[in-house]
Design a protein around this nucleic acid. Sequence first.
DNA 1: GTCTATAACACGATAGAC
DNA 2: GTCTATCGTGTTATAGAC
Lengths: 187, 187
Amino acid sequence: MTPRSGARERLLGAAETLFADQGVAATPVDQVLARAGVAPATLYAHFGSKAGLQAAVLDARLARWDAAWAAAVDAAPDDRGRLLAVFDALDTFARGGAPSRWCTFLATAAGAPADDATAAAAIAADTELLRSRLTELAGPVAGDGAAELAEHLLVVVSGTLAMRLRPGADSAVARGRATAEALVSSV
Amino acid sequence: MTPRSGARERLLGAAETLFADQGVAATPVDQVLARAGVAPATLYAHFGSKAGLQAAVLDARLARWDAAWAAAVDAAPDDRGRLLAVFDALDTFARGGAPSRWCTFLATAAGAPADDATAAAAIAADTELLRSRLTELAGPVAGDGAAELAEHLLVVVSGTLAMRLRPGADSAVARGRATAEALVSSV
DNA sequence: GTCTATAACACGATAGAC
DNA sequence: GTCTATCGTGTTATAGAC
């Protein structure tokens, strides 16, 4: 499916890992090049700039997150499980070969000036996916209150991701899920 | 109390504003110097490095946040209001002369490598303040469930801050408060 | 498309006078 | 303590050969 260009794919993979580990700003282009085993001019031929590479990484990553979440929803046994499957997906996404410290999209927004167009587009796409799918999945659980419950869960999912930056990051998803369960149960 | 050195105070103020607006990494030292109207050597005489300046900004900011939150708690009319006063404080803190895009401490953690000692200390101090005071304030509302409710609210507060990075940042605090109210009401 | 080599620049930090 | 001037380094991006 993906048209193969060895250098291009290696650049995307190297950049995704390094950007996630260290942040985009703290990752020199040289380091991406070294990890990918590619020459500078090749990177600029494909992506035009470091920002272009970053945008390509974000695109690829949103598609993979979308797929991972969809798979977790499919694997859940009932309506409630499907709504909470976002936490299963968060838990397994990193293990499925998607290196992440907390959240690529929030990190991009946080690391860029407020008016950066690339960052704004990335965080907007991620937010839209979260809000629309949560609303859809909340329907069978909350009926007319689906939009409101989805909005609550969007806050909780965002909070779960942010908790990964605080001490005790390892238990962030478990704690976030507990909060989400309390909200779902109160409907 | 604070020994006055005009240049020092101006540097702290300029750095707090610029770091909050653009992020630390995206803010060159030159820009802080220009805004403060101070020469490079003066900054290094006072703070030793850009990281030293950042640490000083974080210290001052945690103290101010602590005070602003405490004031909001005092102004609340009842136990439930005191527990939710953290949202009042979030709403008014920025207006009270504390420039912020989302959260200085989370932004510091997000912008630094995972093993950065300065960033880790800052986020740990902020987290400890949030957790301990929320637990204390949850006591009269939730009794034995205070610790659990506080943990939920810590997730929601973190989520509220993260929502400021998503589209619709202006309503982030209002939406976060609504989520918190749903949790408090379900106890 | 990919390479080697290097240009052009911005940044953090310092030297030395006052 | 504060200034002016500058150094050294690391970084992004490009030129030109293959």
